[in-house]
Nucleic acid binder design. Structure first.
Length: 137
DNA sequence: GCCAACGTTGGC
DNA sequence: GCCAACGTTGGC
């Protein structure tokens, strides 16, 4: 059981769109970055992740669950790119903004802070628990 | 809208 | 195999 963070530009694929997909979820396609892909290959069904809106909003808005392990990305014929399927689990009662994460010393080592460009990243159990608490869970 | 950081590509 | 050039991402 591991924790992850999925980042998406609000205008491209939003939390609301993810929620609308319901329990069958949707594949997290379009990733064209080896690091991000490698993390997705490590994911197992049942792993949980944060859904983060980048760019304009810059906040963690909800929790998702991995419902299918890595498989070929249907949006490309290029064999290099895989993706997992995820479904929305529940929103955070209180979205956790990037400013709040940066203001918390215990979260200073988060990949989100250190390597802001990585679109799929691991989250430690400590970071997971803290952000859930900050989000009102 | 700008720009820094980072990843990838391709010439040598 | 190195590195300059280029493209993209995302915070500000």
């Amino acid at each position: 059981m591991a924790y992850w963070l999925f980042k998406s530009e609000t205008a491209t694929w939003s939390w609301d769109q993810q929620v609308a997909k319901g329990p069958n979820g949707e594949e997290w396609d379009g990733v064209r970055n080896y690091q991000a892909r490698n993390f997705m290959r490590q994911m197992a069904v049942g792993d949980l992740g944060f859904f983060y809106h980048s760019q304009k909003d810059r906040e963690v808005v909800g929790i998702v669950e991995v419902i299918a392990e890595a498989h070929p990305d249907s949006t490309t014929d290029d064999e290099r790119w895989d993706c997992v399927d995820i479904k929305a689990v529940k929103p955070l009662p209180q979205p956790v903004h990037l400013d709040a994460i940066k203001a918390e010393p215990k979260l200073a080592d988060m990949v989100l802070v250190k390597n802001s460009r990585l679109s799929v990243q691991p989250v430690t159990p400590e970071e997971w628990a803290r952000i859930c608490k900050m989000g009102g869970l």
